Simulated scan of single mutants.
Amino acid sequence: MSDALPVLDDLRSESEELDRLVAELSHERWSLPTPAPGWTVAHQIAHLAWTDRAALLAATDPDAFGAEAGKAAAAPGSFVDEGAAEGAVLPPAALLARWRTGRDALWQVLSEAPAGTRLPWYGPPMAVPSMASARLMETWAHGQDVADALGVARAATDRLRHVARIGVRARDFAFAVRGLDAPGEEFRIELTSPGTGETWAYGPEDAAQRVTGPGLDFCLLVTQRAHRADLALRAQGPDADRWLDIAQAFAGPPGAGRPPKGGAA
C-alpha cells in the first residue's frame, strides 16, 4: 500500500480545481497568453500533461524513462518548452482529455506503489510521496498562471503546505544551482497557513536566521509566480535575506522569475 495517499488525495483535489477552471473555456481563451513568456493557457495544461506522462513512465518503465531523461539532459534549455509546444497545438478537447487520462493513470499507479518505492527522475530518485508533492506543486503553480491569464482569483488552501515543504527543502539547491555556497546553518521558517491560520514551522526554534510571513506568499515566491517585492515575507539575517532573492522549489536551471508589479526588477 502506498505511503503517499494523503498527498495523492490533495493532488487530485488540486487537479480537479484547475480542471474546473479550464473545462468550459472557449477555443479562443485557450490561446490567451499567460505570465510565462511564450506560453498560452494551452501550453500550461500541455506541460502538466507532458510531465504527468513522464512521471507515469518513470513509475512503470524505468528504462524507457532513462532514455527520455537522456534526451532532456542533451537539451536542458529547451526540452520543457518543446514538450509544452507539442501538446499546445492539439484541439482543446483533445488536450484536456490527454491531461485527464494521464493524471488519472499516474494517480492510480502511485496509489498502488509499495511503501518505500523510489522512482527515477530528472535529478535524484524520488520517493512516491515526494513525486506526488512535486506534481501538486506544479499543478498549483501552472494553475496560478492560468488563473492570472483568465483574471481569476483563486482561494488558497492548506494543500499549499506540500508546496511550502518542498520550497524549504530546496533551500540549498537554490544556492547550488547558481554556483553559490549554501548557508552552513539551518533557518527557522514560520509561515501562516491560508486556511486554518495555524503556523507551519520548519527548522530549529533558536535559529539566528529566520523567514516569516504568509504561507501563500512563500509558495508564490518559491515557485517564482510573484516577485519578492510584492510579497509580505520577512527575512532576518543576511543568508536568509539572500535566499528570498533566489528561492526556487523546482528542479532545473535558475528561473528568471517574475518582475515586480511596479516594473522591471
Rank of each mutant, 00 (worst) to 15 (best):
G252E: 03
E16Q: 15
E185V: 11
A240Q: 07
R225W: 12
R178Q: 13
A235H: 02
E205Q: 14
A88Q: 05
A105Q: 15
P37N: 10
L180E: 14
W243I: 08
G184Y: 11
P114A: 10
A73Y: 08
V80A: 12
G195W: 06
A74N: 08
E16G: 12
E14F: 09
Q209C: 11
F218V: 10
G197Y: 04
F218M: 11
D206N: 10
D148G: 03
C219T: 02
S26H: 09
E16C: 11
A23S: 15
V109E: 14
A59I: 00
G203T: 01
D81F: 01
R169P: 03
W140N: 00
D3A: 05
A251C: 10
V146S: 04
A240H: 03
P114Y: 06
R118K: 12
I45S: 06
W140P: 00
G255M: 10
A94H: 10
A64H: 12
S26Q: 10
L21M: 08
E186P: 13
L5C: 00
A84W: 05
A149M: 13
M126V: 08
R242S: 11
L221V: 04
D63Q: 14
A64D: 11
D63Y: 12
I189K: 00
L56N: 04
R188M: 05
D158R: 13
L11K: 09
M137V: 03
F65Q: 07
D181T: 15
L216K: 10
A93R: 14
D239L: 02
H142A: 04
S78A: 13
C219I: 02
D245F: 05
R165W: 08
R242L: 14
R20C: 03
A249E: 01
A134W: 01
R29H: 14
A97R: 06
S31P: 00
Q44P: 08
A75Y: 10
A54K: 13
G87V: 06
A36E: 13
E112F: 02
E17S: 14
L110R: 00
A182T: 09
A147T: 02
S2E: 04
E68Y: 11
Q144M: 14
F173G: 09
A265R: 15
A208Y: 08
V177I: 14
A153S: 14
E185D: 15
S2P: 06
L21T: 01
A23E: 15
M126Y: 07
P260Q: 14
F173I: 05
V89C: 06
D181W: 06
P125Y: 11
P254Y: 07
P33Q: 09
G184D: 08
R171G: 04
T117L: 05
S13D: 13
R178E: 05
A251D: 09
L25F: 05
F79D: 06
S15M: 11
G257K: 04
R188G: 12
A164V: 03
H47V: 07
D104V: 08
A247H: 06
G184E: 11
R225K: 12
D206Q: 08
D3H: 02
D245S: 13
S133V: 03
E185M: 10
A149R: 11
T139N: 08
L90Y: 02
P35N: 04
V41N: 05
E24T: 15
G197I: 03
T223C: 07
P259F: 09
E185N: 13
G167S: 06
G197Q: 04
E16F: 10
E138V: 01
L110G: 01
H47S: 07
Q236P: 01
D52K: 13
